[in-house]
Amino acid sequence: MLLLAVVVFNFILLSLVPGDIADTLAGESGGASQEVMDDIRRTYGLDRPFHIQLATYVGKVVQGDLGTSYYFNMPVTELILGRVAPTLLLVVTALVLAILIGTLFGVIASRRPNGLFSHFVTVLALVGFAAPVFWTAFLLIVLFVAMLEIMPLSGLVDPTTPRGTLTWYLDVLHHLFLPVLSLSSIYLASYSRLARASMMDVLGSDYIRTARAKGLGETSVTYKHALRNAVIPVITIAGLQFSHIFSGAVVVETVFTWPGLGTLAFESILRGDTPTIMGILFFSAMIVIVVNLLTDLTYRLVDPRIRSARNA
């Protein structure tokens, strides 16, 4: 349902744009006669009424046909599928790291709400929010690439490494380090603060008092009884913010020339390759929806209340 809306939205957006494919193509080939333009319009079905065009477009998308890239002259679907893996690797690693480390920071901070670490988490959250992700990335490059010289500047992997070998995987990890650090830093900071607040809230609840009255030690109380409850809001927010992380990935990818969807999107925008841009917009919406479903599943695993409420 949502996806259909995205498709229709994409199409309407396209038709709102001044000029059409014929103009773009003609422009690239250095001007063309009216006849050629009309011919192109016929090929792309632009001479037909709006609703027919829309129906045709939706029908194609349903079959997995997102059109043809003007620039690469290949099916957009194919183009995108070739670029998805690096983006998912970057985004998912960053997200998982941000959730794990952020929650850990939050838990540690909540143990001493007025302690040094707790203040550190508060400051970290402010800094993480205020630092633009590309700036963080450049600072990390200055530190790790220029000064320490221990990290590669850009790309997914050293092209000379034979593909599929262990060295190849390690090299990908090596290249992954800085992009992931740049991207996850923002969310790590905000999840730390969130986890801290949520832990402090949970630690004050009645069932934690019950757990203590049972004779459980602080470790059990914190990590078994409190953490599982405290992590619920973190999962909620992470799910809600996934499209933001995806946005951040676009910037990070362009900084590190990471060969993923973000770089492709950015380059396609500069090239005016509209079918590719729309394809990426559609595809990223799909990824966000899938991730939201996964969030929902995680949610059910963690919180039995949701499980039975949805089953009922």
Binding site: D206, Y207, T210, A213, K214, G215, L216, R228, N229, V302
Partner: peptide
Amino acid sequence: RGKDISMIFQEPMTSLNPVY
């Protein structure tokens, strides 16, 4: 606690951990 002296509380609705 829990072995020699046990305690039950006023709020049964919130005194049990919801996720276990």
